[in-house]
């Protein structure tokens, strides 16, 4: 068998994610007649777009040989800030002050929050030479705690139609979140392939010392990358909050895992320097379809996790054996 496949090997390797995705879709559609319907298709796409946003930022981080475990919590806090400001504004009864927020203002505040938390991650990692794993693990807890404080543990609901349009609306026959994630991915592809920032990101991940010796301001680039990751997690937070018309204090829990899984399945090396945004998008789609398929097939949630775990393992093993045979 391997003999006959040999001539096609390069093509197989190149399109392995797409092939896996195709096989997956084929399998699910044979087993369930609900899978290949328009309603389900857009539903899946809508769900995936959140992970695509987060994972785009995560890819940049992983390309520098870092990791960001805080994206789920940052997503929750950013969503909650936006929801809270939209609903209640800022009230200071003592000063007899009330500041109301437009939808756009509240969203900007949410994204600013995410960026600030991301910047803090990058600052802590570069200033104190902390391992990214540790610094962002701390932020995971900090941001979750801040979310609880801000929401006092209760969902913030009733955010108005102009806000929920972001997560539930349609534009030109395509859901708004899908538009948004397509734009984000397009910009990220451009940045990684066509700008100095992108080139420096790959160089740092490939060899930090060589990048530094070449005059790259490694610290600054890393801070930028973590800030972007925070901002994109915040965008994900806006999408989730808007779709549910509610900011949940425990929103985004364990989203970092799905995001890392998408990055890894997409072929980005956790040791940095190798990978791509489009690979991550494929990874995110595979996970999204898998999630959806397992639900449609009435697989118990417990088994779903087991299956997902094995898919991640399989993807990394295949990727490793490919890079070895290069």
């Amino acid at each position: 068998m391997p003999l006959t496949l040999q001539p096609y090997r390069p093509a197989l390797v190149k399109f392995q994610s797409l092939i896996a995705l195709f096989v997956l879709c084929l399998g699910i559609s044979l087993l369930s007649d609900k899978f290949l319907t328009g309603a389900n298709f857009w539903n899946v796409m809508r769900q995936i777009s959140v992970n695509v946003c987060i994972s785009t930022g995560m890819t940049l981080v992983v390309l520098t040989a870092g990791i960001d475990l805080s994206v789920g919590s940052v997503l929750a806090l950013s969503g909650a800030i936006t929801a809270g400001l939209l609903r209640n504004g800022i009230q200071l009864p003592d000063a007899n002050l009330y500041i109301g927020f437009t939808v756009l203002g509240a969203m900007l505040a949410g994204i600013t929050t995410g960026s600030a938390l991301g910047w803090f991650n990058g600052w802590a990692i570069t200033r104190f030479r902390l391992p990214p794993f540790v610094a962002t693990l701390a932020m995971l807890t900090i941001a979750r705690g801040l979310t609880m404080l801000w929401t006092e543990g209760f969902p913030i609901t009733g955010l108005g139609e102009s806000f929920t349009y972001l997560g539930t609306g349609w534009f030109l026959g395509i859901p708004v979140p899908v538009w948004l994630s397509v734009i984000i991915v397009a910009v990220a592809v451009l940045v990684t392939n066509k700008t100095r920032l992108g080139r420096y990101i790959y160089a740092i991940g490939g060899s930090e010392s060589a990048a530094r010796l070449s005059g790259v301001n490694v610290e600054r680039i890393k801070i930028i990358v973590y800030t972007i990751a925070g901002a994109l997690a915040a965008v994900g937070g806006l999408l989730v909050t808007s779709r549910l018309d509610s900011a949940q204090p425990n929103a985004g829990t364990s989203y970092e895992l799905d995001s890392i899984a998408a990055v890894v399945i997409g072929g980005t090396s956790l040791s940095g320097g190798r990978g791509s945004i489009l690979g991550t998008v494929q990874g995110a789609v595979i996970i999204g379809v898998l999630n959806n398929g397992l639900v449609l097939l009435n697989v118990s949630p417990f088994w779903q996790q087991v299956v997902k775990g094995f898919v991640i393992l399989l993807a990394v093993i295949i990727d490793k054996s490919n890079s070895k045979s290069e």
Binding site: R199, A203, G206
Partner: peptide, 29 residues
């Protein structure tokens, strides 16, 4: 191998790494 080159990058990307500002056009490489 460690400090001189980014081994996972190609010849062109390694040569231009110190001079990326010279090969930009309109902000893009």
């Amino acid at each position: 191998k460690r400090d001189g080159l980014v081994l996972g990058m190609d010849v062109q990307e390694n040569i231009s790494l110190t001079a990326l500002e010279h090969i930009e056009r309109g902000g893009l490489l």
